[in-house]
Amino acid sequence: MGVSDQRPAFTDADARAADALIALALDEDLGPDGDDLTSRLLVPADATGGCDVKSRARGVLAGLPIVERILPAVAERTGNAPLELLPIARDGDALHPGSIVASLFGPVRDLLTAERTILNFLTHLSGVATLTRRFVEAVEGTNAVVLDTRKTHPGYRRLEKYAVRCGGGANHRMGLHDACLVKDNHLAAWRERTGERGDLGALVRRVKGELPAEALLIVEVDRHDQFAAVLPAEPDVILLDNLPPEALKQAVAERDAAGSNVKLEASGGVNLDTVRAIAESGVDRISVGALTHSAVALDLGFDWHDAGPPTLP
């Protein structure tokens, strides 16, 4: 599947997550007294100026809606009117060295106060979007969808998952609350506590009977005998953990021969060198923890100028 032209939605829940992190970021920078000491000592209070947020590398943009929320948060701390913002690019856009993301204008003190907070969000989330886009392009032409995981940074889950969408990927479950994913440790704990040694199929059927209607049931397997036991019980997804492409192909063939609608997901050992072969096995989904836990920040910076307020070209 290729990269979609549809822009990802920045939801109300994403906005609430952003606001909480923005408040923490400004608290860290400005301290209990709300003071940008260097700017206060070196920059006249009435000085105004502007800057362009510019890319210095190739990548994919994510995070502009957060910048829009940083500006009033900074203004609330400084007592000034919010900085003026002119977005030039959109989240999901491909960036090149020299691409202008947005222009900002207002009190120079506020620009300096906001600079690092703005760049911290933009560079990290654009890094997630950029890495995701590389995985999505690597599986183009196959049926596989690239998904994130719960391997996110504390507090950043919604924003990192938004960035994955900006890169053309899709979201796995948001947390433990919205899907049931039965992993090997769950099985071990269940068997230890209950003393049951029944097959996985029986367990899946029992869980299906108690699961909320809106929640997905995903079952992890790492051996063929487990897969053969789970498939007839028809969870929503069978997660094939750390299986080589030939074993993945066999699972796809058996699923198709059974006429089952169960989705097959590959996970474990997925990187840019292996993802194409995994996708060509015919699996429906590929989950990649690296999208969020190993993304390198995209190089963005402020280019300063003395121009007046930004205007549309």
Rank of each mutant, 00 (worst) to 15 (best):
M1E: 12
G2S: 15
G2L: 14
Q6D: 15
R7K: 14
A9W: 01
D14G: 00
D19L: 11
L24S: 12
L24N: 11
L26V: 09
E28M: 09
G31C: 04
D33V: 06
G34R: 10
D35T: 12
D35G: 04
D35A: 11
L42F: 14
D46A: 15
G50D: 02
R56C: 04
A57E: 14
R58Y: 09
V60D: 02
P65V: 04
I66Y: 02
P72E: 08
V74K: 08
A75H: 09
R77I: 04
A81V: 15
L86N: 04
L95H: 02
L95G: 02
S99E: 00
V101T: 04
A102D: 00
A102F: 01
S103F: 00
L104N: 01
G106T: 08
G106E: 11
V108T: 15
D110R: 09
D110A: 07
L112Y: 03
L112R: 06
L112T: 03
A114S: 14
L119P: 11
H124K: 09
G127E: 09
V128R: 06
A129Y: 07
R133Y: 14
R134A: 15
T142R: 14
N143Q: 15
A144V: 06
V145F: 11
V146I: 15
T149C: 07
R150H: 07
H153E: 07
Y156N: 05
R165K: 15
G167F: 11
N171D: 08
N171A: 05
C180Q: 01
K183Q: 00
D184G: 01
A188P: 00
T194R: 03
T194S: 13
G195D: 05
R197I: 02
R197G: 06
R197Y: 02
G198P: 00
L200S: 02
G201H: 05
K208W: 08
L211C: 06
A215W: 09
L217R: 05
I218D: 01
E220A: 01
E220C: 00
R223A: 15
H224G: 02
D225N: 02
I238Q: 06
L239N: 03
N242G: 12
N242T: 09
P245K: 12
A251R: 06
E254L: 13
R255T: 13
A258R: 13
G259D: 07
N261D: 15
N271W: 12
I278F: 11
D284S: 08
D284M: 07
R285L: 15
I286V: 14
G289H: 06
A295Y: 06
A297S: 13
W304E: 05
P309F: 00
T311I: 10
